[in-house]
């Protein structure tokens, strides 16, 4: 009896199920428009993200590079300043050693016309000492580096000794330069260089902003600026290394 009632119940429910599953309720007006607007709102941020993420990533990298470059140049400049402060004593010592070395070589070589040579050297030194003020810092550093290397080298052979004074003309130039004056020059050069760097960074950021706003024409210029920043960084790093080698 119970089984038959259960069966009846189930058959009744399955009949209801068929009816109920086909039931259709009226839909209020404008519901699809609401749905469409919500779907638009849901999808738009993704599209924006997809379109902008490469630009955002590039901007982040550019800012990072710019910050890193400016930071390292600050560090480099402070290192250079501290290095230059120490420079006079070391350069003087090195120069004195070199003078003594050259004099001993000059005495030992009777075949060479030392007096003429010395006159020529001093003349060249005087001539060279004036343009030194205009030469860039990097070149001046290279000259100093040469001195440091020469201090460590073994004394040259008899044949090679004849040629040495010509090379060491450069050393005489170093002696004639007032190191304090050089420091002042370097400081003023640095001050001059720092201002354009900041301006360049500002221009670079402006260009990046323009590219993000949708002006891709500036992109090639930005890439060039990246290269310039990278080159400047490498150059500064080399300069620092050279400074430390001198010390």
């Amino acid at each position: 009896m119970k089984n038959s009632t259960d069966k009846d119940q189930k058959s009744m429910e399955s009949a209801w199920r068929r009816k109920m599953q086909e039931e259709i309720s009226p839909i209020p007006e404008g519901l699809w428009e609401k749905m469409s607007a919500r779907l638009d709102a849901e999808e738009k941020p993704k599209v924006f993200f997809i379109k902008t993420w490469p630009w955002a990533a590039m901007l982040a990298v550019a800012l990072g590079l710019a910050w890193y470059a400016s930071d390292t140049t600050h560090e480099a400049d402070s290192n250079v300043i501290s290095g230059l402060k120490n420079l006079p004593t070391t350069t003087k010592r090195a120069a004195r050693q070199e003078i003594a070395h050259v004099r001993s070589l000059a005495r030992g070589k009777s075949r060479l016309n030392s007096s003429l040579k010395n006159e020529g050297m001093s003349e060249r030194a005087l001539v060279k000492s004036t343009p030194v003020e205009t030469i860039p810092r990097a070149e001046a550093i290279q000259v100093k580096e040469e001195v440091a290397i020469k201090q460590n080298t073994v004394l040259p052979t008899h044949v090679a000794m004849e040629k040495i004074p010509e090379k060491e003309e450069v050393i005489w130039v170093q002696v004639d330069i007032d190191p304090m004056l050089q420091v002042k020059e370097d400081m003023s050069n640095m001050a001059e260089k720092m201002a354009p760097k900041k301006r360049n960074l500002g221009q670079l950021l402006k260009k990046i902003k323009q590219v993000i706003k949708g002006n891709p024409g500036e992109w090639s210029e930005i890439k060039e600026n990246f290269h310039l920043v990278a080159n400047k960084y490498v150059q500064t790093e080399e300069n620092i290394k050279q400074k430390f080698q001198i010390q």
């Binding site: 039931e23 259709i24 699809w32």
Partner: peptide, 11 residues
């Protein structure tokens, strides 16, 4: 899809 199923789903 919305128009086809909306009535049934509202029910």
């Amino acid at each position: 899809v919305f128009k086809r199923l909306a009535g049934k789903m509202m029910a």
